[in-house]
Design a protein around this nucleic acid. Structure first.
Length: 875
DNA sequence: AAAGCTATA
DNA sequence: GCACGTATAGCTTTC
């Protein structure tokens, strides 16, 4: 039986280690997961390396142990277990069970004693023993067949204690470790030892005398008067300490080695726990495919034409696309489910059927969808305008909790307890392995999705109503999805030639700057590499590094600007970066996104992504087209109307976030300022600096503007000081002055943080929620971040609510007025249209009117607008 | 895949 | 004494 190997783990000790080694992670439900995660990592690694035949995780049973009858203060003065860790123990236990590992705890005994007892029994049986703990006391158990692994810093770094290693490290035998503890004590366990005797002295004494008992028998021979005195005075305490430090190897345990055979994990259970805790990396690494086991068989019919009889009044419908870029992706087919029968129609056959297209357009035919925006966009590509959407899974899940990061039907369904859908990755493969499976597989996959929609609708709607978010979902997000789908599919015309010419111009300029930089640096290097640049600037040229990053010198723009006066290379580098960014992201990047067939760019808005309720824009991002610097702003010249004699028309909300703040805080001074339509930054400067309007300098206004931004973002004196390049103290004074001038804002900020603490979430004007589990964290950084988001999210999110509502009203108004003008883009606080010149006069009237009336606040909303022959000219 | 940088509101 | 402004997307380099 020499091949048997038993692995004994100290559960409490390892959980503590994991907890303190890792940052306080949480999953999207606010459950702390760092200890479980670290424990899992250790477990995986150690099992893989050791391949044990037997395993056990021992836990401490309770607070009191037999050692307390010897010494009441044993382990006294210990900090109580942080609640963030306590809450993780149940998961650790569940996980151990899922792995199929035995766990054990025993009244009055510690995990050490269980491990000691079992390691002795295993040793006697001739097994190899491996003990894992974070507690060095366990090293006393080391023998020729027993190795004790003690975690070092981190979670997977381990020191292996064999008798030889102990000899080498301390010059002692494993059992003498107990004597050493007896003499030197152990602060963490509150074992006193002999005061004044530390590790060095203890080791020296034991090398001479062998044990505590022998030492006291030969006390006369000990050199050093002081030491002898200390030893004499503390003889009882030394002997008691030794007994406290001795691990019991004959504890009355009720498990036997034979019960501990390890036969491998139940991966289904393990994966379920990983999912519950959102261990994404572990899930991705695991090749275990649990879906096939979890899903139940379904029935479906593949059709090669659509018969009117299958298109009923209410149906779940899913368009199965090969990839997520639905504007260009191949349509693999559509699935339909009516509560009983599932159908799949391959490819674009459905859209070739007038019966189907008519059904899609019919508002009285009710559709349940996974992603109505995508469905709308794809339908429009097939010249169909869909109506009658009554459910959108993606949006419903997002409104329930915007932190849910998953965007495929399978993972959303699982969030709400429905497991009968496979992931896209498992059907198509991911990365380089992605490919189209056979038709049958696709049909089944798509059918499962349609069935999921049907089954999940009641669950999601109930949740939305319970949270009073049903109208946010049904009257705001759902109609908006259709509008966004239309905007995306309409697209925006981009003049390729303009971009190409700008690109050539940029390339030329870049080459010149590049050469200049090489001359100034005295060598050629990759300017785009912060690492190489850092070496040139701070080592070769010898500039002073003002800031560091995790990996080296920071060469960020704000740092370089401060060094600009030191060396002329800085200015060149900043210019190189600026032009390089324009060329790679905006010239080359945008050119790649122009569709050949229509010369347009079709971005995709992510409607279910941000935690605040804003949209985001991808492939390409049209919400960050340059505007601040003239050189970049010229990119906007390429964005033109799709008809030659039309114009671009842009309208933006003025100071919408500060107006929202005025509304929510009801601060009299701020409300007044907006009611009188004052320049808010000037007004802030007047109040913060106590000057008259005429005496506000441009610097004062700039500082006030930064303070206003800071207030919206959840201010800190440090952040403001960085932004304004002033001291922290000065920044703190500004903030104090601001809050004195706008006391209602201070009250509001305090209250919103309190509210977040009490309810666990904050809300916007339209009752959008954001959960902030970390607001009660004991970690300063996490808590502070949550507090700032508690202040910012209602402001940013309410502004998002307002413009979304405006978009819905605007789309309706364009229809009502029978206009050809099209709403094309949304950039957080602005809307961009293209319009025939004849409609300009009307547009100038209705756009501000509709936007300003979108949601009534207790301050007016203000909209500025402009038009011109390109986006650039709308200024 | 992560880090560093830069573009927007 | 620590670390320290909100929300994003995308490019290049480096591991």
């Amino acid at each position: 039986m020499a091949s048997e190997k038993i692995l004994l783990l100290d559960g409490n000790s390892l959980a503590y280690r994991a907890f303190f080694a890792l940052p306080l992670l949480t999953n999207e439900h606010g459950i702390h997961t760092n200890a479980v995660y670290g424990f899992t990592m250790m477990l995986q690694k150690i099992m893989e390396e050791e391949k044990p035949t037997h395993m056990l995780v021992a836990f401490d049973a309770g607070k009191t142990t037999f050692r307390h009858s010897t010494f009441e203060e044993y382990k006294g003065g210990r900090q109580k277990t942080p609640p963030e860790l306590s809450e993780q123990f149940p998961y650790i236990r569940k996980l151990i069970d899922a792995y199929g590992i035995k766990r054990y705890e025993l009244e009055m005994y510690e995990a050490d004693d269980i491990i000691g007892t079992l390691s002795k029994q295993a040793y006697e049986k001739g097994q190899q023993v491996v003990i894992v703990s974070g507690d060095k006391d366990l090293t006393q158990l080391s023998t020729d067949k027993t190795t004790v692994y003690i975690t070092r810093k981190g979670i997977t770094d381990i020191e292996k204690y064999t008798p030889a290693h102990i000899e080498e490290k301390y010059g002692l035998t494993p059992l003498q470790i107990i004597d050493m503890k007896g003499l030197m004590g152990d602060a963490s366990d509150n074992i006193p030892g002999v005061p004044g005797v530390g590790e060095k002295t203890a080791i020296k004494l034991l090398k001479e005398h062998g044990s505590v008992e022998n030492l006291y028998q030969a006390l006369d021979t000990v050199s050093g008067v002081k030491l002898k005195e200390k030893l004499t005075a503390n003889e009882e305490q030394a002997k008691m300490s030794k007994s406290l430090a001795t691990i019991e190897v004959n504890a009355p345990i009720e498990v036997a080695i034979e019960d501990l055979t390890y036969s491998g994990p139940n991966m289904e259970d393990v994966v379920a726990i990983w999912k519950e805790l959102s261990f994404k990396t572990l899930l991705e690494k695991t090749e275990y495919v649990e879906e096939d086991q979890e899903t139940t068989e379904i029935q479906f019919t593949i059709l090669d034409e659509i018969d009117a009889s299958i298109l009923q009044d209410t149906m779940a419908l899913h368009l199965e696309m090969y990839d997520e870029q639905y504007h260009t992706s191949e349509l693999l087919g559509i699935s339909l489910f009516n509560g009983e029968e599932s159908y799949f129609v391959p490819g674009s056959i459905a859209f070739e059927s007038p019966v189907f297209c008519t059904w899609l357009e019919d508002a009285t035919k009710i559709k349940y969808l996974a992603d109505s925006k995508a469905t709308q966009a794809v339908s429009r590509k097939h010249k169909v305008s869909m109506h009658g959407v009554d459910f959108d899974l993606l949006l419903a899940a997002y409104i329930v909790n915007p932190s849910i990061s998953s965007d495929d039907v399978s993972s959303i369904a699982k969030e709400f307890g429905y497991y009968n859908v496979l992931t896209n990755d498992s059907v198509y493969g991911k990365g380089a392995k992605k490919s189209t499976p056979e038709l049958d597989k696709i049909a089944e996959h798509a059918s499962r999705k349609a069935q999921a929609l049907w089954n999940l609708k009641p669950t999601l709607e109930e949740k939305l109503k319970e949270n009073e978010q049903y109208s946010l979902y049904k009257e705001l997000e759902l109609p908006l999805a259709s509008i966004l789908g239309t905007m995306e599919s309409d697209g925006v015309k981009v003049d390729k030639q303009i971009l190409v010419e700008m690109g050539q111009d940029l390339e030329g300029k870049l080459q010149i700057i590049e050469k200049d930089i090489y001359v100034l640096a005295g060598e050629e290097f990759n300017i785009n590499s912060p690492k190489q640049l850092g070496v040139i600037l701070f080592e070769k040229i010898g500039l002073t590094p003002l800031k560091k990053t995790k990996t080296g010198y920071s060469t960020a723009a704000d740092v370089l600007e401060k060094l600009a006066s030191e060396h002329e290379i800085i200015e060149q580098i900043l210019h190189y970066r600026q032009l390089g960014k324009l060329n790679s992201t905006y010239i080359e990047g945008l050119l790649k996104e122009i569709h050949e067939d229509d010369g347009k760019i079709h971005t995709r808005y992510q409607q279910a992504l941000t935690s605040t309720g804003r949209l985001s824009s991808i492939n390409p991002n049209l919400q960050n087209i340059p505007v601040r610097l003239e050189e970049g702003r010229k990119i906007r010249k390429a964005f033109v109307p799709s008809n030659p004699d039309w114009v671009m028309f842009a309208a933006d909300y003025s100071q919408i976030e500060l107006r929202v703040l005025a509304h929510m805080s009801e601060d009299v001074n701020l409300v007044d300022a907006f009611n009188q339509d004052m320049d808010i930054h000037t007004k802030t400067a007047m109040d913060v600096f106590h000057v008259e309007k005429e005496d506000v300098t441009s610097d004062m206004r700039r500082a006030a503007k930064a303070v206003n931004f800071g207030i919206v973002y959840g201010i800190s004196d440090y952040g403001l000081s960085q932004n304004l390049n002033i001291t922290r103290k000065e920044a703190a004074t500004f903030i104090k002055q601001y809050l004195n001038s706008f006391p209602g804002v201070k009250v509001y900020m305090d209250e919103i943080v309190q509210e977040a603490k009490q309810r666990g979430f904050v809300t916007t004007i339209l009752n959008r929620r954001r959960y902030l589990p970390e607001i009660t964290s004991s970690n300063f950084n996490l808590r502070s971040f949550a507090e700032r988001t508690a202040m910012n999210t209602p402001i940013q999110g309410s502004a998002a609510d307002i413009i979304k509502k405006a978009m819905i009203d605007m789309a309706q108004r364009l229809i009502d007025e029978n206009m050809q003008s099209k709403m094309l883009l949304q950039v957080h606080d602005e809307l961009i249209f293209e319009a025939p010149r004849e409609e300009l006069a009307l547009l100038e009237k209705i756009v501000p009117e509709v936007m300003e009336a979108a949601i009534k606040l207790n301050v007016p909303l203000k909209v500025d607008y402009a038009f011109g022959s390109s986006w650039y000219d709308t200024k």
